[in-house]
Each structure stands twice: as C-alpha cells, then as structure tokens.
Design a protein around this nucleic acid. Structure first.
Lengths: 336, 336
DNA sequence: CTGAAAGCGCTTACAG
DNA sequence: CTGAAAGCGCTTACAG
C-alpha cells in the first residue's frame, strides 16, 4: 500500500542506505548517476518518506506544541492570540515545523502528553503567573517559548518575545497628556499576567512624574471578560461626575468601554476619551474608530518560532537573542 | 535519558510484551499482581510511552491535520474560523486526537506534507470551490472533514458539517419582512464558497416568493474583506436614495456596513437596517448591537471531529451520519 | 498467564 | 562510492 524506502531501493537497484543519503542530501556522497536514478524512481513511485519513522530514529519530531491561554476559547474572543498564532504559523512554515495544539486538561495531563508526543519545543502565549506549568514544561527538557510575559521566564532554554510595554504605556499616556487629560482611569486586564503588572507599574510611574499620586481607584475591571468590564465601567461612570479618559488593557476591553459609555449617553471622545491596546482588526471599525497602541503580533509570533528553531538546531544560542522586545506604535483614530 | 518500555520491563522483571499489555489494557490478559508491579514501576520511573514509536507500529498517529482558509491570516480576521476551531479542539480533546496545522504553500506541498506526516484525517474549514485540494486530499486515502460547505463534498470517507443555510437565510429574510422591509440588498461574501452560493439562491427564492424579481444589483461587495465591503457599501449608499435594509454575508461584513453607514451620516436602524450572519463575539458590542443569524460554531467544530473519529475508528459509518446540519438561530439586537 | 522475536520505516555507524 | 546490519521504542503474532 504505502511506498517505503525499501521499495525505492529495490526498484533502483541500490541499498536503502543509498536512498536515505539521496533523500537527505548527505551526510555521505552519492554518485550523481545513482542519485538521479533514485530520484527518478522516487518520483515514479510517488514516494514520500514517512515522517513518523524519521522522527523515531532522529529523536526529533519537527513539531512545536502550543498551549493557548487558560481556555481554548480565548482564541475566539481575544484577537491577540489569533494575531500571535498567525505569526507562529508563518514562522513554522519558514523553518519547517508543524504546530500542534495541546488541549489536554490538567497540568499533569499536559506534561504527560508532551512527554509522550515529544514535540521539539513548547510555546505558551500570555501564561498566567503563578501557574506551575512553565516549570513543569522546563522539567521536560525541551526549549520553551513564551510570548507576552516579558522576560519573566528568562532561561538558557527559553525564548521570551514580547512587545515593549514600557514604551507602549508611555506612548499612550503621553498621547492622553497631549490631549489635555490628567484624570485617567485604567480599565486593566487580568492581574495574573506579567503584562498587566508591568503596565500598571508604568502607569503609576507616569502619574507620579505628572505629580499625581496613584491609588487603587484608578484601576477598574481587572479582567479581560467583556461582561465584567462592561459592568465595572458602568459602575465607574455612575459615580464619577468628571471622567476624562479611560485607558483600556486591550481592544476587547476598549470595545466594552465604548459600549458602556454609549449606553450611558456619553459621547466619545467629547465626554470620555478612550484608548486601547493591541490594535485588533476591528479597532478601525469600532464606533468611533479606536485609538490604540499597536503590537506587532505577527512579528512576535514569527520571532518566537525562529528563536525556538535556533535553540533546537543549536544555532544562535547567545543570551541576548533569547529575549526579544518589539516596539509598539501609537495608532490615532477617533476615540481620543 | 529517556525511560523506555525496556527499562520498565527490566525493573519489573517481566518482558516488554507484558509491559505493553498492561499499558494498553490488553489485548491479552495480565495477572493482577504482575500488572500492579508494572504499573508501580512505571510510576516510579516516570515512564511515558513514546507516541512516535507507537504511531509507527500502529500506523495511526492520532493526529488530525487542519487547513484553515486560503490564508492563515483568516484565523485572525474571521471569527467564524476561530469559533469552529474552538469546537474542533474540544472534540479532539474528548476523542484523544491532536490537531496540527498544515501551513505548507502549494497544494502539492500540502499533499506531500500529509503523506509524510500521516495524520489520521484532514479537516478543511470553508474551502473555496474549484480548488482541487479536496480531491488531492481524498487521493491520500484518509478521511476528510469539511466544515462550511454543506454536503458539497459528500462521500464515503468524508464528514460534512455545516449550519443549515436555507433556514438561516429564511430566518433573516422573514425578520426583515416583519420589520416592513421589501427592498433588501445583500452584501454578500466570497462567491467561491458553497455557503455564499446557497445563501444567494435562497435570497433570490425568497424575493420571488415576495413577488420581487431579483437582479444583480441586489448583490454588492462579493468579498469578505472589510475594505472592499466598505467601499462597495459606500458606493451603494451614494447612488441609492432609498436603501432600506442590508443583509450582510457575515458579521465582519456587517461591521464594515455599519461603519460605512455611520460615515455617511445614516442612522441604524432608522435610515438603514442591518442584519449579519454568524454572531461573532463582537456582535453585541457593535454600535448599534448587531442583529444576526447565529451559527453554533462550537457544536459544528465538535461534530466534525466526532464524525472523523468515528470514521477512523470504523464506527457509525452510516451514510446519514456523514452529513450533518445544525439549525441557526435569529438573535435580535438593535440594528434592525 | 508469559517470553522471545519479528517488524513498523527510517538513519547511520561499520566495513569494504 | 556503496551495502549489510543495528537500532530508534513500541506492538503483536508465535510458542510455550
């Protein structure tokens, strides 16, 4: 049924070793005429070398496993994940890796699954802090790629790629300052993410530079879930007579903020100014078009895969290439 | 380094065959005491059976390959794909399959890739008609799952799962009728998709039932790309003094329609009424909240995987279970 | 109830 | 430049 290397060898009148060497272009030389004969029978028999067998002997699967968010559903509601993924796919394609999703349940199941499946590397997008999953993954002994957590997991065998959140927050704050805002509220995301914590710290730092002492009331929502955000913003608008600007933790949060403001009868940006983070595809189609801090999601996704591939293939393992930060950009639309 | 079945056998004082039989709970019986001893050494040595080796001998990888859209980027901009994917992941997890993305370029590359990687099945979401990819996939001889193309690819070895577009279009048209609309324009999607063609046919059929003869001017956009849609809608609104309702091919199109109407200074739903298709997570956060035809994306995604798993495992191959259609629902919000 | 051995489809030292 | 053979980590007939 399936054409194997043995069939090709027999048909070409050579040994399987020779077929293997032409297949892999080495490591040993093959006489040009022989090579040609083998190549042509491979084509004639429609031979495709079995990647499973190859993985077994090479102890390398050319698979990178990926864990997306706490819940698989984040891929649907959070365009950040989707954007990173698209970049990951592009990088994987360039480097000849397959991306497989690990969807098993508990951390233990996942570890078992990884040890069984033997991916060459694992990838996590925006891991929650405090999980022991990254530690578990490291114990497996394969390279780990972390997106969206700064250099928190920095390590010999770890590639960390992220946007530069210090620059991003400063860009946003600076923009609000120029628009004349001083009283800013941060509709912040999940507190268990590194990015949330860093952005909060920068936010507070900037306020202090402005001579304002930050306090807990400056932060609302503390979640990426639209309903939670909506309720928190509504409550905030209820009791505040003079909201001026709301900085949203991502564009999904911004969308809920816009909706809450609209339902409250407030005009954006006249009554409340809103700025987002990420630049999701829908940002320009929101009402009004959303001003936001753009992350180069595609580049970030590509970069982790490149870094991981280098680690797997033992090139470029220099420390400075293991942590990478991409600069964000301010995209001004109509909400500020 | 890696703990193998041989290590477990040696440590337990049994043959590798015995270890294998306890691992797989059969097909041959193992004396309870022996089994227990083996299990405990497996645990003690932290043994995880190598899935690659198992795949090689069993000729089954427990992998389903997936091809997403024409371009990998559709996963980012089109929430339909993401919704289906989430369901696919859920189904895969239940059935013990891994999902791997095939991102190779040309159809030929993809075929080669599949023959090499040996997934147990392949999955395509909303394939473009006229491609020869599905035919190529069938030639590989593994089950094929098709989402979003009705029963177009129906076949012994193919699972087709989709929403019922006849019901969906009728729900939407009925709703517009009840709202008093008679002059309806269809901002339709990519003409190369089965769903587009079916929906167009139903749209025309309903118009005829209303005593209206449909014509080409009733269809605009012919694309899912936001910029194209925006331009087409703007142009349409320009030359039409009395638009009443616009039926959008999906919620992404609807978003662009809303934006174009807003930029034209038209109120929705007073000046133009808009209805979408799919019910993306953002639908309720649009301005105004979007009335739309909801597809059970998650269920659809789960269902293909279940069907495929049955086909792989040779259960339930009855013809009627190979094609499945889920009923859509009308979700009324503020845009109609 | 259990073991020794063949075999899945490759790669790569070992010999010539 | 090439072939015969061992081995990657499993499963499963074949024998007992």
């Amino acid at each position: 049924m399936m054409v194997t290397i043995r069939d090709v060898a027999k048909e070409s009148g050579v040994s399987v070793a020779t077929v293997s060497y032409v297949l892999n272009n080495g490591p040993r030389a093959v006489r040009p005429e022989t090579r040609e004969r083998v190549v042509s029978t491979m084509r004639r028999l429609n031979y495709h070398p079995n990647a499973v067998a190859r993985s077994l002997v090479r102890q390398r699967t050319h698979v990178m496993g990926i864990l997306v968010g706490d819940e698989q559903s984040e891929i649907v509601t959070n365009n950040y994940y989707a954007g990173i993924l698209a970049g990951v796919f592009a990088g994987a394609r360039q480097r000849g890796y397959n991306i497989t999703f690990f969807t098993a349940g508990t951390d233990k199941d996942i570890e078992h699954h990884i040890r069984a499946q033997q991916p060459d590397a694992m990838l996590m997008i925006a891991p929650r802090l405090g999980q022991d999953l990254p530690k578990r993954l490291k114990s497996v002994g394969i390279p780990l790629g972390i997106v969206g957590a700064g250099d928190f997991y920095e390590d010999d065998a770890t590639i960390c790629v992220d946007v530069d959140n210090v620059v991003g927050m400063r860009l946003g704050m600076q923009h609000l300052w120029e628009r004349g805002h001083r009283k800013i509220v941060y509709a912040i995301g999940n507190p268990n993410q590194e990015s949330t914590q860093v952005r909060r710290a920068v936010f507070e730092q900037v306020l202090r530079e402005w001579g304002i002492e930050p306090n807990d009331q400056d932060f609302i929502a503390h979640s990426f879930q639209a309903e939670v955000v909506y309720a928190a913003v509504q409550q905030y608008l209820e009791k505040t007579s003079t909201p001026t600007a709301i900085f949203a933790g991502n564009d999904g949060i911004a969308l809920a903020v816009l909706q809450a403001a609209r339902d409250k009868g407030l005009r954006v940006p006249e009554d409340v100014t809103v700025i987002g983070y990420d630049d999701w595809p829908v940002a320009s189609y929101m009402t009004p078009g959303l001003t936001t801090i753009q992350q180069p999601m595609h580049q970030i996704g590509e970069a982790v895969v490149q870094g991981l591939a280098n680690l797997i293939e033992k090139k470029n393992v220099k420390a400075e290439t293991r942590v990478k930060r991409f600069p964000p950009t301010l995209v001004v639309r109509d909400s500020t």
